[in-house]
Amino acid sequence: MDAIASNAPLVVFIVIGTIAVAASFLVVMMRNPVHSALFLLLTFLCVAVLFVIKAAEFVAAVQVLVYAGGIMVLFLFVVMLINVRHLPDEKMTTSYTLGGIGVGVAIFVLFFAVVRTGAYHDEAPNAAKKLTTVREQVLTQHPTDPNKLVRKWRAKDNRNAEAIGMALYRDYLVPFEVASLFLLVAMIGAIVIGKRELSALEEETAPDYMLERVETEKEVKDLVNAN
């Protein structure tokens, strides 16, 4: 029983890791982008489990919320917006296929050679060191004058999310604010780029259903104006 309990993280790692690798392989191999997106979702969820094994619960939650919740919905929306059934079938083997697989194998061999040198094979060398210990200021009584309070630093053991919050809002406050500015710029950029306007070039190349819709809009406007 003890052996099972102590080996449980390793077993979970092997099972979930295998699923993650298989799912990511299918992401690349699936012809239909909807299937690719669903396998990508499976990969993200597996990676979240891997984060939990390494005691990163908050990052795992963010992974599920942002990746599996936000980015995947974005991808699926775009796949629905772009009518993939009306696209010509993608050729699965092109002149890039061999070179691409070669580059992938080369990168994998490179990483494998680096990891294999044996520097990282021991299990949790810093396990005794607490990952989530933070220093916080507390008010304590002055040693000699009982009417005075002094600020003192104290080590406190926090939960993962609490410790990350402390790090984000104290040590990484400026990068955090820059990240929020980055998100604002990305949002404005996405809105401006994705805005729909029919230019002359677009009227030439736009698919038929879009021109039909524009014509219908014009007819409705004309009708409204006529009445």
């Binding site: 690798v21 992401v27 690349v28 890039y96 691409g100 992938g104 990168i107 990483f111």
Partner: peptide
């Protein structure tokens, strides 16, 4: 490394 290699293969092919 495996996931990264699969990703880079996907980007190229």
């Amino acid at each position: 490394a495996t996931l990264f290699a699969i990703g880079i293969v996907g980007v190229i092919i």
